[in-house]
Design a protein around this nucleic acid. Structure first.
Lengths: 208, 208
DNA sequence: CACTTGATGGTATGTTTGTACCATAAAAGA
DNA sequence: TCTTTTATGGTACAAACATACCATCAAGTG
């Protein structure tokens, strides 16, 4: 046999080229050739590792979904660590961290969220993409928020009449909407961040 | 001359075919041929009325933007009328009407919002679509909401410490996010509506 | 009645796309 | 050493696309 290459690494390299292409020219403009050029390989190689274009798109989407989970978990982890290893983090800080993940700040997160959104919209009309793992991440986050909000309410940090489930739905929708408006260039990331903080300030009473 | 046709009507007819095609197969899959077939005319006719595909897409987008304005204004008008011709409508009802416009209920509004969203996302990467009237409608709505919220606060219907501008931003983002989640099939229209109502219930005190 | 002009159909063309096919170098196993 | 398998390149091909071109019919105008 020849070089005996690490397949997963090669696939990841090609997928990254696809994501770059999708972010700069749009997911609809992604072509086997443009991906190959972006990855610095021949079209034949892309075929070799992904057989068909549809499978390439599928694989890229799965990678995005995995990354989304990692991103959110990392954000939460940072907050947990920042509060010191012994103290439990305040629910408000954890919730803020999760919500702010949806706001694209640097170029890297902008790219990520743009392509993620392109996929989400595409999945509505494309049967091959439909019913994919797009729903898992949001559902997971919703359950997580409900738990945090419930804890906060029982600790007396919010209005006792607050409905944790409804509030989680609204928070998630607001952060998604704010992130989208930043992508569309309607708002700056700072404005979106300020809006999230304002809203959380109204939701949470000062502890004690 | 021949039949002497109403150009605007013909153009509207073709654009409607484009919107249907975009809603069912995705904006990226829209082709001169599919539009022509959908409109029941020859490809040559589409060329005749819109010259190039880019101009066709542009014209359809403009039509969407105009419709969006009409939709919102109609919603507000309904609320104003429902309260009786002499009484001023309660800000809460007006705000609710505006926000619920973003939630797709029947098939017609689902089609409309889906294509609108497809255009919005496309405009991020497509230079021909960039910097278009997408921003006008949201800005207008934001100003409108700020005015309503300010009036409500001054009438004592909300917490006096409420920041009308920040609150408007959050409300707009939440309704956009909820509408999107309905399009993506994550939530039902009823759930989204309930979330909007819940949030407004917390924002507005009962008048008096 | 001739003629111009608006509205339409059909077809040709050049380009781009995804994919299939053919070839080959190189390493490992017999 | 011969053969099989892995990784790669190049090219060919049919389909689809946007667009340009050529033709025709009908309705008003002179």
């Amino acid at each position: 046999m020849p070089k005996l290459v690490d397949h997963e690494e090669r696939r990841a390299h090609i997928i990254d080229a696809l994501l770059r292409a999708a972010a700069s020219d749009g997911l609809h403009a992604v072509t086997m050739r443009s991906v190959a050029i972006g990855a610095g390989v021949s079209v034949r190689l892309v075929q070799y590792y992904f057989d068909t274009k549809e499978q390439l798109l599928l694989a890229a989407m799965e990678r995005l979904a995995v990354r989304m989970g990692e991103r959110v978990r990392r954000r939460v982890g940072e907050r947990v660590g920042a509060a010191g290893s012994s103290t439990a983090p305040r629910p408000r800080d954890v919730v803020e961290a999760v919500l702010l993940e949806a706001v694209p700040t640097d170029e890297e997160s902008r790219t990520f969220h743009l392509v993620y959104t392109e996929y989400a919209v595409l999945s509505v009309t494309d049967p091959a993409l439909a019913g994919q793992r797009f729903l898992a991440a949001p559902d997971e986050m919703e359950a997580f928020l409900v738990a945090q909000l419930t804890a906060a309410r029982e600790a007396g940090d919010t209005d006792p009449r607050m409905d944790a489930r409804q509030e989680a739905v609204v928070l998630l929708a607001a952060s998604a909407g704010l992130g989208l408006s930043v992508l569309l260039g309607q708002r700056t990331a700072d404005d979106a961040t300020a809006a999230v903080r304002y809203h959380l300030g109204r939701l949470f009473h000062p502890a004690r």
